[in-house]
Amino acid sequence: GPMAAMCVSSQRLCQMVHSAGLRHGTVDRLHTLLATGWWMAAIDSSYDSQLDQMIVRSTNRFTVVKKLANDIAVLPQPAHPGSSLPATLIGLHGQNLFEALVALRLLADATKNVHLEVALAARRLAMQETVDLHIHVYERIVY
């Protein structure tokens, strides 16, 4: 039934977000929200179709963003993840990373890997932002 379908789509979304390796706590937050939503849908059937549609939309959107990130991640050579990331970006997250990315000025002789690592950092931030926005919307519905 719809509850079982929602359970499966929730687990799939959590698994995808987990495998993306986003900021600590993201998967836990999403998992708690979806579990809460599942119980609310069990009590009030007006929730289940709305939530299930949202979960499917989130999964579809996230699939696209994650694929784009994976496509970039395989390009740097040799494979030393993050080793070519400019020092001004290391350890930054969220708004700080966004501002540093926008302000970033690379030297004209920057290597291919540096550009690829910067592109990957921007894509990974877009992935985190996408998940965060979807979590924000779920929170407004569930709580």
């Binding site: 291919k112 921007a122 877009a126 926005l133």
Partner: peptide
């Protein structure tokens, strides 16, 4: 709402940055 608008603006800016650096990566 404001959160969604800010999100789409940042996403557009990030997409542009990705494009720019992928282009530069192919040039070196």
């Amino acid at each position: 709402n404001a959160t969604t608008l800010a999100f789409f603006r940042r996403l557009e800016a990030l997409d542009a940055l990705v494009e720019k650096h992928l282009d530069l990566a192919t040039q070196v």
